[in-house]
């Protein structure tokens, strides 16, 4: 064995890197990071899923996450408490959602173009506001972010304890709770049935006495609010300051995750966690085996992975039937 390894240096490095990978998977910090990376994606994916389940594609997600990140952080910087900051971020998302909804639902304009417009608007408005409110700061001011919640007894469990029950903030717990809540509302309540009906067959929903315009507007508003909270997680929990470009494509990845999840909340959680695990792993592999490889290759992986996930799921993608189909009463 030893001789073989000496004769074959590549063999040794390969097995080494596999052991390294295994080591990484057994550390609590890896799983804590996985959940931390997954949290904004859970919020964003749930938000996009709610919009699309009602039949409205929301490409505003990337910009809405930027706006949420700014407003949440800014509110706290200006003296609000953390919970108020999250609430204000949510309301910011709702506002952009209502604009996207107004353009795409009653006015039935192109969901693609409106969504891109919302992303450009929310992003540029956020950057402009940042420049006006903080005209001459050399570096972004910091806030006191959410702290990890340490649960009694449970945090003593090996591996799961430090990563889950001692390593996560209230926002991650909120994200996990929202997965269950969204699933329950979508599949177990009349509201959820109405949302799904509007996404599958709005004419039939209308015949059942459901106000399609109201349901779609509501779904887009709530979904956009969740997206903004996902952005706020980055400035209020993962980091403690706002930077330009900090969303960095996370919104677009969420759209891919919705397809990967077949528009189901539970699978969305799974997808976000898988994605988080993969991202946490690549950061650690970069440190251990990445010596000679350009770091950009590792940074590309999340985006490549998202495209691969779309390709793998393409055969089974069960789009809501009326996704991107505007509905006008009495028109076919």
């Amino acid at each position: 064995m030893l001789g073989f390894a000496v004769l074959n240096p590549t063999y040794e490095t390969v097995s080494d890197s596999m052991l390294e990978t295994l080591d990484i998977l057994l550390t609590a910090s890896f799983w804590a990071a996985t959940l931390r990376i997954a949290t904004p994606l859970i919020f964003g994916t749930l938000g996009e899923l709610i919009c699309e389940r009602a039949g409205v594609l929301n490409l505003g997600i990337e910009g809405i996450m930027v706006a949420g990140a700014l407003i949440g952080w800014l509110s706290v910087y200006m003296g609000a408490d953390l919970v108020t900051g999250v609430a204000l971020a949510f309301l910011t998302g709702v506002a952009f959602g209502l604009l996207h909804g107004a353009l795409t639902v009653p006015l039935a304009l192109s969901q693609h173009v409106s969504g891109i417009g919302i992303t450009l608007l929310a992003t540029s408005l956020s950057y402009y506001a940042y420049r006006i409110i903080l005209p001459d700061v050399p570096s972004p001011p910091r806030i006191e972010p959410f702290q990890p919640i340490v649960w009694p007894i449970l945090s003593e469990i090996p591996l799961i304890g430090p990563s889950l029950f001692a390593g996560q903030t209230a926002m991650t717990w909120l994200a996990l709770a929202l997965v269950a809540l969204t699933a329950w509302v979508l599949y177990r309540t009349p509201v959820g049935l109405a949302v799904r009906a509007c996404g599958e067959n709005p004419a039939a929903a209308e015949a059942q006495g459901i106000d399609v315009t109201a349901v779609r507007m509501g779904a887009v508003a709530v979904g956009s609010g969740l997206m903004a909270v996902g952005g706020a997680f980055l400035t209020m929990s993962a980091f403690n300051a706002f930077f330009f470009e900090m969303i960095n494509g996370r919104g677009w990845i969420c759209i891919a995750l919705v397809v990967f999840a077949s528009w189901r909340p539970g699978k969305a959680l799974l997808g976000a966690l898988l994605f988080g695990a993969f991202d946490a792993l690549q950061v650690r592999l970069q440190q251990t085996i990445g010596g000679d490889l350009p770091y950009q290759l590792f940074l590309m992986l999340p985006f490549v992975l998202s495209i691969l996930a779309l390709i793998v799921m393409s055969r089974r993608a069960a789009y809501p039937k009326a996704l991107m189909v505007p509905y006008r009463k009495g028109e076919r």
Binding site: G117, L121, S124
Partner: peptide, 14 residues
Amino acid sequence: SNTIADLIVAIALL
């Protein structure tokens, strides 16, 4: 701030 340019363009799209 010159970020106003991107803002005008975004509003023009909508």
